[in-house]
Design a protein around this nucleic acid. Structure first.
Lengths: 120, 120
DNA sequence: CCAATATCTCAATATATATAGAGAGATTGA
DNA sequence: TCAATCTCTCTATATATATTGAGATATTGG
């Protein structure tokens, strides 16, 4: 994750509809959702509007797409999200643990799955 | 950190100059830097341009300012950055530890300060 | 008080982004 | 093959954002 890619990712997330799409797709899991289904979830946004936002997200690397029959299925790119978080934390944490400490504490509390594994 | 504040934060970070400013101020520490010094570090950007970007960052809550004599000193808001990271991780982690696991592992490796403290 | 310094505010302009609507391309089932 | 379905592309337009330059405001030292 370099500066350019981080900027693209932040731009992509700096828009209400796109932020909602990302969160929806993260919850949807690796199986993803069709463009139409995503549009329905977004107050029934027009297909061209959906296409625009989905292509922005795909260009930023936050989601990926595949065709399945008539539909195009979009799914969240988990590695990209993870990289973005790491970019934020790496650049902040470097000199200043007061940024990461609270985040790490809160997260470790939240993500049980990681317990006994986070401090490798 | 609600959706609106997260959007503001992403918008603020989605601009090259502002992303550089944030990183500079995080490294500068709580003491911060004067608007002029920040401008010098940004290829000598014009004062009005600096003022514009700094006010965007301040409005987004990512930095704070205080007057010191003739200068206005800006400093990073560590809690805001921490909250933003938590917002990203909370919404992602909820259903999908594959996003947070790698981030947590990488971070725990990086931030020694946190060792033995991260899994409270 | 006056001149110098540091920064902000405002107006004009350039550029980027978001939305809507019309229509094209791909895929499927009859 | 034809009609229906799903999504994309293209064009026009509206809105938001970034940059510049001129000038206003606040602070300090003489």
């Amino acid at each position: 994750m370099n500066d350019k890619r981080a900027l693209d990712a932040f731009s992509a997330l700096a828009q209400e509809t796109r932020l909602r799409i990302v969160r929806l797709l993260v919850q949807a899991g690796p199986g993803g959702m069709s463009a139409g289904a995503i549009g329905d979830a977004m107050d029934g946004a027009s297909s061209s509007r959906m296409s625009f936002h989905l292509s922005q997200l795909e260009h930023a690397g936050l989601v990926q797409s595949r065709r399945e029959g008539r539909s195009i299925i979009y799914s969240a790119s988990y590695p990209a999200l993870s990289d973005l978080i790491q970019f934020l934390m790496r650049d902040c944490c470097q000199g200043h643990p007061e940024v990461c400490n609270p985040a790490l504490k809160a997260l470790s509390r939240q993500c049980d799955h990681v317990k006994g594994d986070a401090h490798v």
